[in-house]
Design a protein around this nucleic acid. Structure first.
Lengths: 189, 189
DNA sequence: GATGGAAGCGGAGGAGCCTCCGCTACGTCC
DNA sequence: GGACGTAGCGGAGGCTCCTCCGCTTCCATC
């Protein structure tokens, strides 16, 4: 249960928050170069100060804007597990993860922070991702095709690292293959 | 042979360049929070425009400032190969690489660009790194402990990815282990 | 050693980021 | 339904980044 702890948001604040999110999604989806936060605030019809109060960093705004769509990516994990053996499902999900980051403008940088620090109060996405990735790894471990001694968070960080560092898509794929090789069950010492 | 192609730098330009580099090294070494480029230009006694002409991006300046020290890291690779079996030498060198990036302020971000794009004219460091890493991988391949089908550049990108994404040092070490497992000779299909 | 042209200089200025604080208006309590 | 405390608003302003272009300085040539 998110953000119900201290006190429900005031009516106008809630309205502004919604407007900001909508404007942000619009802005991030448009093809142009990069987006200024001032422009988003203006489009939402609120002051820049209001934007920063609701979303203290650019990352927080991006994360919130894409949270829904990111959810879909996470929801796809069980389906993949149904359709393929665990290690292939894992590889496929990771590939989609990279695709997702590549298309969402600024998402890779945002996720670096979100993934790196559980401390971030806006980082609900991190939990969702862990919940999607965990079962994939566990299924692989149960099947003996993925080692069992790897931390889910470490794999998530690896993925964000790959998306940050890789230049072209082909390189990201090679790095994913490398990661998969590291993740496979080590049949010899 | 670097930057001798079109025309030797004018005397005053060369002097300014040296001053800027010196000021940058000083500034980056100081413990304080972050450094503004204006401050570096001021310390060097030149205008901000001059700084940007010599080093068109912050990354270019950082890269140039640390190039010498980075060279030492690269020079250490053959020594490591003398002292240990190739796979252990490789692991040790990668570990030093991470340490290096962690201590040099802003270096990880700078290297992302430097490593990702060979196009950057200031990216001599990329070549040095490739020349250091290549023999480590080759020696491992010759010994049969490291697979031979991995691109040196990909490994370099992986390292920069790890340094970018990893939170604490311990996590970076775990990711390096994972990478090493992926790099080892695959004894079974 | 004078001179012309080009390499190089430098800082003003425009743009984005983010903070801070006086003002507004929400909603609660009587 | 009035009044009061405070959550929330908004934008001016300070900071940094980076560009652009008129001015300065070098040096090749004679």
């Amino acid at each position: 249960m998110p953000e119900t702890s201290p006190r429900p948001l005031r009516a106008d604040a809630l309205r502004n928050r919604e407007r900001l999110l909508e404007a942000a999604i619009q802005a991030f989806s448009r093809p142009g170069p990069e987006v200024t936060l001032d422009a988003i605030a203006r489009a939402a019809g609120v002051g820049i100060g209001t934007l920063y109060r609701h979303f203290p960093t650019r990352e927080a705004l991006i994360e919130a804007a894409y949270r829904n769509e990111l959810g879909k990516l996470c929801d796809a994990a069980p389906d993949l597990l149904d359709q393929s053996p665990p290690d292939r499902a894992l590889r496929a999900w990771m590939s989609r993860f990279i695709d997702y980051l590549a298309t969402k403008r600024g998402m890779a940088d945002a996720l670096r922070l979100v993934i790196a620090t559980g401390a971030n109060p806006y980082a609900q996405s991190r939990d969702r991702l862990l919940e999607a990735l965990g079962p994939l790894l566990a299924a692989g471990a149960a099947a003996g095709t993925v080692r069992a001694d790897v931390d889910t968070g470490d794999v998530l960080v690896s993925l964000s690292g790959i998306s940050l560092a890789a230049g072209e898509r082909a390189q990201a794929d090679r790095l994913l293959d490398l990661l998969m090789d590291g993740l496979r069950h080590r049949r010899t010492g």
